[in-house]
Simulated scan of single mutants.
Amino acid sequence: MSAGFHQSALIMLPVYFLINQKKINVIKATTIMGAVFILLLTPLSDIIIRWVLNFFPNSYSYYYQQGSQNSLRATLISSFYFFLIVLNINKLNGKELIYGKLSLIATIISLLAYKVSMITRIGMYFDIFLIVTIPLVFSKMKKGKVRVILFTVMFGIYLLRYWSFFHNDIWIDSYKTYQTILNK
């Protein structure tokens, strides 16, 4: 359905064949973490992105060539959600596990935005599953200090993101004067 809204959604078609209700064992989890680190620390992600861009119109290549990247801070913050999900995904069952895997894709994409921030546009298709997965993960954790600490860190991250968004110079300058169509 998403391909009907935007052409970039076509890149998600293989996801349909990867998402299932099978648990992720330690080897797969380690492989996922290793692959993400390799994509972040080597030029392999650039090679893959350039190859994928060959299948899309030139406007996508233009966005990629702009070279904008997410900050290291944003990547470290995103890594919290990545590790929270990858280390707790096997506590989920059935549809919960599918939502967890889709959320894992969202967090991987947000990490890869360290190299190319435009990839977050694809990540938006998966971000919605975090709304379901994060509360499920916390509900499956044992009650204790670790759960409270993780929840506090997560809450702090959300506060930091909202604060930085609303204190960004781009937004402050743009909205100093409020304009409506009624002024005309």
Rank of each mutant, 00 (worst) to 15 (best):
Y16L: 12
M12C: 10
L18K: 09
Q179K: 04
L76Q: 01
I98Q: 12
I108W: 03
L72F: 10
R121T: 15
A3D: 00
Y81V: 00
F129Q: 01
V52C: 03
V86G: 05
K22V: 13
N25R: 04
R73Q: 09
T133D: 05
I77Y: 02
T133C: 13
K184W: 02
G94I: 05
F165S: 10
L72M: 10
G123K: 10
Y125Q: 12
I122F: 10
K176Q: 13
N58V: 11
F82Q: 00
L76E: 00
P135Y: 12
F83Q: 05
L111A: 01
R147L: 12
S78A: 11
I48L: 15
S117M: 02
W171Q: 04
I128L: 03
I11H: 01
G4A: 06
L40M: 13
V52P: 01
A106Y: 02
L84H: 06
V137D: 14
I128S: 03
T120H: 05
M141H: 13
Y114F: 12
N183C: 00
V26C: 07
I38V: 11
K22H: 15
Y16D: 06
D127E: 07
Q179V: 07
A29H: 05
F55V: 00
S68I: 07
L92D: 02
N168A: 02
N58Y: 05
Y63D: 05
N70V: 03
K140F: 04
F17Y: 12
G100A: 05
S79I: 03
R73S: 01
F151D: 02
Y158S: 06
I32A: 05
V52S: 06
A3I: 15
L136F: 13
S103A: 12
L44I: 12
N183H: 11
V52H: 08
L39S: 13
K145N: 10
Y114L: 04
I11D: 00
I85Q: 10
S2K: 07
Y178I: 10
N20M: 08
N93P: 09
R50Y: 11
